[in-house]
């Protein structure tokens, strides 16, 4: 092979490699994307049934119910217009409180109850997850969170 041909081959190989890499990356990326839905969007049937997604809202005061002998916990999330029921079997984060904005990852069960695999609350008592803040604002433009600094 002449050096010219060799360089050509090298370029072709690199291009093929990069093509494969890009295809792999995009596939993996697509599989692991999680979309965010508000309780209003869920009750309008916009959320997927099979795929995991995130939901966020305020924890309805008085809605947190614990099972007596396990870690299972049941609560309701609201965006002040619609509600969605959530179950979670695990340890809630330190900043999980009634009235607080939280985000949950998980899947929608057949009965319309969201089965959370992870519950996230952030590290500040006044903090409102931005997804939650945007969802609240979208579904209820008049809503104002008391004491939310940001």
């Amino acid at each position: 092979m002449t050096p010219r041909q060799r360089r050509l081959w090298a370029v072709v190989l690199v291009l093929i490699g990069m093509g494969i890499a890009t295809a792999l990356i995009l596939t993996a990326f697509n599989k692991n994307l999680m979309y965010f839905y508000s309780p209003s969007q869920i009750s309008a049937g916009e959320a997927p049934q099979e795929r995991p997604f995130r939901v966020g809202g305020l924890v309805v005061r008085g809605s947190v119910k614990r099972a007596p002998n396990s870690l299972a916990v049941h609560f309701t999330l609201t965006d002040t217009i619609k509600n969605v029921d959530v179950t979670f079997d695990g340890i809630l984060p330190d900043l999980f409180r009634e009235g607080q904005g939280i985000v949950a990852n998980g899947k929608l069960g057949g009965d319309g109850v969201f089965v959370a695999s992870e519950v996230l609350a952030k590290h500040d008592e006044n903090y409102m997850p931005p997804e939650v803040a945007a969802a609240l604002k979208k579904s209820n433009p008049n809503y104002r969170h008391n004491g939310a600094a940001p």
């Binding site: 692991n32 994307l33 965010f36 945007a134």
Partner: peptide, 17 residues
């Protein structure tokens, strides 16, 4: 265009590859 998040499985998979 919407709010999404990318889960750790994506990074783990890509990294091992």
């Amino acid at each position: 265009l919407g709010k999404i998040s990318v889960g750790p499985p994506y990074f783990n998979l890509m990294f091992s590859i």
